[in-house]
Amino acid sequence: MNLVVEGLVQRFGDATVLDGLDLRTGDIRALVLVGPSGGGKTTLLRILAGLDLPVAGSVAFDGVALPREETGLRAYRRRVGTVFQSWNLFPHLSALENLLLPLVHVHGLSRAAALARVRGPLERFRLAAEAGKRPAQLSGGQKQRIAILRALVVDPQRLFLDEPTSALDPEMTAEVLEMIGELSREGTRFVLVTHEMAFARRVADEVAFVAEGKVLAHGPATTMFDACPVPRVRDFFSRILP
């Protein structure tokens, strides 16, 4: 995927969260957004995922601009998948029904076809035994892996993952990162916001450092982590990398 962002501005009340953000990637599979909290990563991801409209600026994936009105954006959201920090599964439905809902009600599959579609992925990620449980009965790691499957089973063009492990303990973090890593190796395209720098280095084709509402630096993972020419970014990494 090739992403071009130009002059993106987002405000919430008086606060300017994105301040004329520009980003131009190569033809890549995985883009990772890193940077300090409150720097605008999540706000940027929500716009890329078609959840929020920016105040100004434009976004284009592979040369196709994102729609600027809700109906067009909804059609766009149906072609991509989004995973949230706090998973946001539907608590009144079982894990299985959480997966079936978008297939049946958004993509028009019959229940039987939808069941056939989700069986393989559930088994593959060792979640088949959990399918009948409500989200409240699942561990955090299981919830997030179901949430990733919910985004994935509709066969999206790309995934947007917003700090998918920030609400998890280390063991569950490992199990979720392992799943994302596996999807990455298979060629799933995604944009990921994360604080897991070691993981970012492993999966990212490009890393963008977002702070103060702008992209302060971006490039291949190795350049970014080991030899970034921008002092502000080097400082950040030197403080958090071992």
């Binding site: 995922a49 959840l51 909804r74 059609a75 959201r77 149906r78 998948g81 989004t82 949230f84 706090s86 946001n88 599964l89 539907f90 608590p91 009144h92 809902l101 978008p102 009600h105 958004v106 919910r150 985004a151 509709v154």
Partner: peptide, 25 residues
């Protein structure tokens, strides 16, 4: 609010979100 986010993210219409996600809860 995350429930409305998730409903929109999977592409539900506002009416579907109300009927399938918000009202049952």
């Amino acid at each position: 609010a995350g429930q409305r986010d998730a409903a929109r993210a999977i592409g539900l219409t506002p009416w579907q979100a109300l009927r399938l996600v918000i009202l049952p809860q």
